[in-house]
Design a protein around this nucleic acid. Structure first.
Lengths: 150, 150
DNA sequence: ACCGCAATTGATAATCATTCTCGAATAGTA
DNA sequence: TACTATTCGAGAATGATTATCAATTGCGGT
């Protein structure tokens, strides 16, 4: 069995686990997010699904992503400059370091930031179920580029 | 001197400090963000400025906010459901606890989350200059409401 | 205090991401 | 296999954001 089929099955299992009705579109979108680490935009997801021989419309991509967000399977990242939302499968807690120059997003698998959730709950009385940490800076490549220009 | 005038002067000082050219519109917008703690949306800011007898267009509100963001004077908060961006003066580090039901935003003045910036820099080689932490949950009021409905 | 000019404003138009609509297709169940 | 609620999708509608550009204005230099 080729790798591609395995990840499709993994996605199907995950959908079943969350009691989300399975469709080819949902399977492909989720499997893409589960295996790729490129924090794709809506457009990238749309192109990926069509590029792999599945039919899909933009409306379906939007609907599916919202559904996965509501089920806490994925998160939405606001990559500020450029203004496009990006999406990320979020089984393992991690945070994002974002380059404000080229919008690259790098994962850091460290869940220390999650410890603040407890405190947030105590301070505010909110019933907390998730949190997100994002760091802004300039990536090594852009540091070089910007130094040359100056 | 009335309070309102004081905050306008404070905003003017801040603009000078950051070498941003002073205009009435910028002064009012910044003073609003500096003194209000209601994390306003674009629309709220627009209405506030007009409501206080200053002329302004939406384009100017957008431009001014982007300028203040670029100067790290304010930050943009993605209040997910509803999808409207909210803005917050950010001199004193704090994080936001957001109600996913009513979109209320509560400040928690605790900068422990900022400690992760150092690690992010080490892990990724990025030159880090800022970070943002957001917690998602249900506020006490909405907890009651949702319990009653069930 | 005034000049000159680069920067800003603002009304409106243009753009473009996202949501809506609703008939057709489909998944899951019995 | 048949049934029914759900989902899909093409295109239209919406609405937030950005672009345009002439008129205005802030401000450093004189």
């Amino acid at each position: 069995m080729v790798q591609e089929q395995k990840t499709l099955l993994a996605a199907a299992d995950k959908l079943k686990e969350y009691k989300i009705k399975n469709t080819p579109q949902r399977q492909v979108i989720l499997s893409y997010l589960m295996t790729s680490h490129d924090h794709p935009s809506i457009e990238m997801i749309f192109n990926y699904v069509r590029g792999n021989g599945f039919s899909v419309s933009l409306a379906t991509v939007y609907n599916t992503l919202q559904l996965l967000i509501d089920n806490n399977l994925i998160i939405e990242i606001a990559a500020d400059s450029g203004g496009h939302m990006r999406y990320d499968y979020f089984e393992i807690p991690h945070y994002h370091v974002i380059c404000v120059n080229c919008n690259k997003i790098v994962d850091v698998f460290d869940d220390k930031y999650k410890k603040n959730e407890e405190n947030a709950q105590l301070e505010t009385g909110f019933q907390v179920f998730n949190s997100q940490y994002e760091v802004y800076g300039v990536c090594p490549e852009c540091q070089k580029k910007l130094a040359q220009e100056a």
